[in-house]
Write a protein that binds this DNA or RNA. Structure first.
Lengths: 192, 192
DNA sequence: TTGACTTTACCGTCCGGACGGTACAGTAAA
DNA sequence: TTTACTGTACCGTCCGGACGGTAAAGTCAA
């Protein structure tokens, strides 16, 4: 487990996600992943003993990354009203601003076995509950959740339905809908 | 081409979509589809000469069905403001109320070849444009589009993140956000 | 209305290739 | 000496698709 350069595991995960997005999850072969990651098939099988383990890791990695970003955003908003929704918006916004192409590879996992989605299912359910609890208007929390889910799904499927400007407009629109309207915070925070 | 009972083509399409959702698009084999549809592999290949043609038909079918429903909903709302957004909401609502499980199979198509998504890409782009043009507030149109896209993606991935009540709440919430607030139409139409 | 022919809608078999996974010998750094 | 691989060779299975056949339904002239 090195830290300076990209871990072998990370290289493999990234390669797998890229290939899946390029040629489609069906044609995601271990041979191709190994080649793209710059190691042999033996080396790949050494790191991930089966294809299923690789796909599982893909999903785990995706959830873990999102959760980490979310908790960071939440931390700076001490459980105030709408803070979970706001944090979600900001996580998506940060991804978008950094222009992460995010070929997450979860599509590949699901395509191989629908049950790989279970962790995401659980995570999202829990996240939505927290959003609703923390919000003034549970229905608006739902809509916020779904809007972000919509944005994420478009990215997941590599759809350029929204232009860059549209995406900014959507994010800003969401932000305003859930902006803190307290007098002590007259406008949106410029924290990003 | 009979009309009384389900067409062979439709049976195949349905079988393919079902299998894809059950075992994952990767394991969608022509043999399995043929078996499920109640014919031989030869018969299947007679109807769809290649797997690609089958997947293409899956996507086409999906888009065509949605478009038909949408146009019907639009027809009863003569180009009034927000009518496109409203129509979209009602189409989703109708699907939901009828409890269509919609194993649409487009995931299978995309999984086999990402370029199969192109027709959907084009369709959605055009739809979003129409939504924005037809709406008072383009940003809110965006949010409506994304919310519905969120709902659709959850269904596409077979996610039960939202309970039945949540879905109703989300749809009703959307409806209210885009309800005609003209004096001549004081409340939501009960047309459903 | 019969016989000749075409079209439609399949069936069953087979083949080549791709893929997941195994086995194992070797190697270079730490 | 262990860890983290490389590289090669190979196995068994599955799958897409080609192909040859066939039974029934329709067409049409005599």
């Amino acid at each position: 487990m090195r830290a300076a350069t990209l871990t072998t595991k990370d290289k493999i995960l990234q390669a797998a996600a890229e290939i899946a997005m390029e040629v489609g999850p069906v044609h995601l072969s271990l041979d191709a992943v190994a080649r793209r990651a710059g190691l042999s098939k033996g080396g790949l099988l050494y790191t991930f003993p089966t294809k299923a383990k690789l796909l599982e890791a893909l999903v785990e990695h995706h959830v873990a990354e999102f959760d980490e970003s979310l908790r960071m955003q939440e931390a700076r908003r001490n459980h105030k009203v709408n803070s979970v929704v706001q944090a979600c918006i900001e996580v998506y916004r940060a991804e978008f601003v950094l222009n992460e192409p995010e070929p997450s590879g979860i599509l590949a996992a699901i395509a191989n076995d629908p049950s790989f989605i279970d962790p995401i299912r659980r995570y999202n359910k829990q996240l939505l509950d927290r959003m609703k609890e923390n919000s003034e208007d549970p229905t608006m929390a739902l809509i916020a959740f779904l809007t972000i889910e919509g944005l994420r799904s478009l990215k997941l499927l590599d759809m350029d339905t929204l232009t860059h400007e549209d995406q900014i407009a959507a994010i800003d629109g969401l932000r305003q809908l859930f902006a803190p309207c307290d007098p002590d915070k007259p406008s949106q925070p410029a924290t990003g």
